[in-house]
């Protein structure tokens, strides 16, 4: 059901979010707004949305940039051999126990070195059957919540068949209208960007 290869390992975690270290070389590069999951125990997985991807600072890279004598071979060496880790920050939006998916915070966070995997199309369709996670995203301070949601919805819409894609986006728009009825400017900004073509 999910991408088999892990794209990273948990560095630090709390109930509301966690940070994952991964390497540039990984076959499936994580994207901003992607729905990901971390299997934490038998039959339990934590779902989250990627809200930040950060390339870690490295004195050797900084020195190369300052010097400016860049060679293709040195760039490849830095990117593929040195494997400077990138950090992926994830907002927790739900969890799965058995076949049941819950949208909300899980009873326990992932542990260090748990593996992060990208959700498959089936996972995304299953998770977005309900849209209660919108409130968690919109209420999260210090993350680009609107951007995360817009990107996530566009990507989620792509995994629906063309005949139900429009219906999915209209349902999402209605849920957003309900949650953001007090902030029409913000609502308008999101709706315009997820409008079905």
């Amino acid at each position: 059901m999910s991408t088999v290869l892990p794209i990273g390992w948990v560095l630090r975690a709390s109930t509301v979010g966690f940070t994952v270290g991964c390497r540039v070389l990984q076959p499936t590069t994580p994207h901003f707004g992607d729905l990901v999951k971390v299997p934490v125990a038998d039959d339990v997985s934590v779902f989250g949305l990627i809200y930040n991807v950060q390339v870690q600072d490295d004195p050797a890279v900084r020195q190369l940039i300052l010097v400016g004598e860049m060679e293709t071979e040195a760039i490849l060496d830095q990117r593929e051999n040195r494997l400077v880790p990138i950090e992926v920050s994830v907002l927790v939006v739900g969890y799965q126990r058995g076949k049941q998916i819950y949208q909300g915070l899980p009873p326990q966070p992932p542990l260090s070195l748990d593996t992060l995997i990208l959700c498959s199309d089936a996972d995304i369709r299953a998770f977005t059957q309900t849209l209660d996670y919108f409130r968690l995203v919109l209420n999260s301070a210090q993350i680009p919540a609107d951007e995360v949601l817009v990107t996530n919805l566009r990507r989620a819409a792509e995994v629906y068949p063309p005949e139900t894609r429009r219906q999915f986006l209209i349902g999402a728009g209605r849920e957003l209208a309900r949650l953001l009825s007090f902030d029409l400017v913000r609502l308008d900004n999101i709706l315009r960007r997820i409008r079905p073509v």
């Binding site: 060679e71 293709t72 071979e73 040195a74 490849l76 060496d77 990117r79 593929e80 051999n81």
Partner: peptide, 14 residues
């Protein structure tokens, strides 16, 4: 050890 091949456009081997 590292093997750096200038002009190869390949990543160095370690």
């Amino acid at each position: 050890c590292i093997i750096y091949r200038h002009g190869s456009n390949k990543k160095p081997e370690t």
